[in-house]
Design a protein around this nucleic acid. Structure first.
Length: 666
DNA sequence: TTAGGGTTAG
């Protein structure tokens, strides 16, 4: 074997060895292998030196040595698979071991196509595949969607008499399942005699991936051996199929749970939108001292953001700090989003400023957060700064910026930004951006302009566009147009209860009670149920939820007493209930009572009752806040000297000294 | 003589 310079690894010249190296001619195969296995794991430089030694001694001819050398180069740690391939190409007749190493390496370096071509080479070179060959190959097929090849490889497995190997079987089952060929996967499970628990689990996972719950349950029921992963596969699979309650039942039934079991059930609840349940399980985890895995923390933060649970969100933040978790972009973004949505803009800012790596989504979260708090100038400032740091805004960025302008009544600025989207940033505005613009005009009372804008749009307006216009009609009391738009929307979205409510409110405000009745009758005919208003208040880490006229809270008596006292105080200060938006045509006094029992007022009374004077109250409502509650909250902030931060379905209201940050413009 | 499997994944 020649040892010309061209055969040496780059950067290493023949004869350039470290001082401790023994003269190469004296190195035995065993010592070379020792060097490779013990010294070359961390340093590419060491590996290249060893490589040079190998070339100088004829050990490269030795399959054991060249194989080990390729294995070292293929170590994902070096992130340089090309080198491994290069060395491989210099091996005259590579044996099955080194081929298998490359198959595995192709997957580890996320180049599954290379695994297929490597197998091809193997066949050409007459290197007989063995049981280590097929699992990575099946995986490669699954990753690349190469069905034909996968079936072929399966045939080879059968021909070579390897069908009983558990590793091959489980990989094959997974491959077929990833193709959606659940029947083929099952055939593989049943072929070649017995299977083991890993294969059963893979099959169950495969069934559940395609919603075949019954088949999965049956298999699960008759498995001779089950382990934690079997349970976890069922739980996460059921949750993914939307059967979170069945998942929960299994979760309760299983013996020893691991962190994956807990995470799977939390995740399942989150995916179903059962945020309170997810948080309850998280509390249980804390009680049982189970450490949440880092990956569910962003999901949990999203839950806190949705529910407005600042205390819980803070707890997670502390948890991250205490455990020195690295705050990477996703976790940091989730923290920014949570703080902003829970009304703590200062903290959102702090986390944002301290993040080392920010992604577009991070900037979007900050901009969106400022926007829902009505801080348009700041949102635009962040938007400008983002570009200073060479981050390219995306469509979502513009939703945030345009929303900021809409909420702050900055019409001109908003329109200029819309124009810049395509001209400056090359982003084609989409429906959601047009929706923001309609909102921009509508909130500012420029209803004609909003209509004109809709007419000029290049696409058919969707329900969100009409919805923005309808809301503008409600705020600015434009009954005529509101009526027209309202009926368009009822046609477009007959199932959306909110649309009925809005139209009915518009009629009610105009005193057109016959029309109110007409809308309500239609709703009844179509079987549409209203979403009950509900408000939550987060207190000492516990979430208290109140629904309209709700009597289920254990302290309800005291709360209603407090509510009565509060309303009395308000009346003394000159508050008179704004009954125009109550949906029913009922006697004035009854209307007043209905208003008094709005969930946000109950939550407010509870907050006043339960906290020290001066404490900021944070309330989250699932629908838009009504006008009456809005004015009541303003007065309470003045009379009781409290800051109240309320989030409704769309934006924030900071009440202080009788004023609201939205400037009554929402 | 070297090497290997399935559950969560925003």
């Amino acid at each position: 074997m020649s040892t010309t310079a061209t055969n040496f690894p780059s950067g290493i010249k023949p004869g350039e060895f470290s001082s401790e190296t023994i003269p190469s001619s004296e190195l035995s195969q065993k010592s070379v292998l020792n060097i490779l296995n013990n010294k070359c794991y961390n340093s590419l430089q060491h590996l290249k030196q060893a490589h040079a030694i190998i070339l100088r001694t004829d050990h490269f001819q030795d399959h054991y040595v060249s194989g080990t050398l390729v294995k070292c180069y293929a170590n994902p740690h070096f992130n340089n698979f090309t080198l491994a391939l290069k060395v491989f190409d210099n091996i005259p007749r590579p044996n099955v071991f080194v081929c298998n190493i490359l198959l595995k390496g192709s997957l580890e370096h996320e180049e599954p196509h290379k695994a297929l071509s490597c197998y091809h080479k193997m066949v050409l070179l007459n290197s007989r595949p063995n049981m280590f060959t097929y699992p990575p190959l099946f995986k490669a097929c699954a990753m690349t969607g190469c069905v034909k090849e996968g079936v072929q490889f399966h045939a080879h497995v059968v021909k070579l008499g390897l069908s009983e190997d558990g590793h091959i079987k489980s990989a094959g089952i997974q491959m077929y399942a990833s193709f959606g060929l659940v029947g083929e996967a099952r055939k593989m499970l049943d072929e070649g005699g017995g299977s083991d628990v890993v294969c059963w689990n893979a099959m169950i996972g495969g069934y559940l991936k395609f919603g075949e719950v019954e088949a999965a349950s049956e298999l699960f029921g008759c498995m001779p051996v089950k382990n934690v992963r079997s349970w976890n596969t069922m739980i996460s699979g059921l949750a993914r199929c939307g059967m979170v309650e069945s998942a929960r039942a299994l979760f309760n039934e299983m013996g020893k749970k691991d962190e994956v079991s807990w995470s799977a059930i939390v995740d399942g609840y989150i995916k179903q939108g059962c945020y309170k349940e997810a948080l309850a399980v998280f509390h249980e985890m804390q009680r049982e001292k189970v450490k949440p895995r880092q990956y569910i923390l962003p999901s949990l933060l999203t839950v806190c953001a949705n529910l407005g649970c600042l205390d819980q969100g803070r707890w997670i933040h502390l948890y991250v700090e205490r455990n020195s978790f690295h705050v990477e972009a996703m976790l940091g973004t989730a923290l920014v989003d949570m703080y902003a949505k829970c009304g703590s803009l200062d903290m959102a800012r702090e986390v944002f400023e301290n993040m080392e790596v920010k992604e577009v989504s991070t900037w979007n979260a900050m901009i969106g957060g400022l926007s829902i708090h009505g801080q348009a100038e700041e949102a635009i400032e962040v938007f400008t700064k983002m570009q200073g740091e060479s981050i390219k805004p995306n469509g979502i960025t513009f939703v945030g910026v345009l929303n900021a302008c809409a909420h702050a009544g900055m019409v001109e600025k908003g329109l200029a930004i819309l124009d810049s989207m395509k001209e400056v940033y090359g982003i084609e505005p989409e429906m959601e951006h047009f929706g923001c613009v309609v909102d921009l005009f509508g909130r500012a009372g420029l209803i004609e302009e909003a209509e004109k804008f809709i007419d000029s749009m290049s696409m058919q307006p969707n329900a969100a566009i009409w919805g923005a216009l309808l809301n503008a009609c409600r705020v600015h009391g434009n009954v005529e147009l509101g009526e027209k738009v309202g009926w368009i929307l009822l046609d477009m979205e007959p199932q959306n209860s909110g649309r009925y409510a809005l139209l009915s409110n518009i009629y009610a405000k105009a005193g057109r009670w016959d029309d109110v009745t007409r809308v309500r009758k239609l709703m009844k005919e179509r079987g549409i149920k209203t979403i009950p208003g509900s408000s939550v208040i987060d207190m000492k880490g516990r979430v208290h939820e109140f629904k309209m006229g709700d009597g289920s809270h254990p302290q309800m008596k005291e709360i209603y007493l407090m509510l009565e006292r509060m309303m009395e105080k308000l009346r003394v200060e000159g508050y008179s209930p704004n009954t125009s938006t109550v949906m029913f045509d009922i006697e004035e006094e009854e209307k007043e009572t209905a208003l008094e029992r709005h969930s946000e007022k109950i939550a407010l009374a509870f907050g006043l009752l339960e906290t020290e004077p001066g404490t900021t109250l944070r309330i989250v409502k699932n629908l838009r806040v009504c006008e009456d509650c809005h004015s009541a909250f303003k007065l309470v902030s003045q009379i009781y000297g409290r800051d109240i931060i309320m989030r409704d379905r769309v934006r924030y209201h900071h009440f202080r000294n009788g004023m609201c940050s939205c400037k009554d413009f929402w």
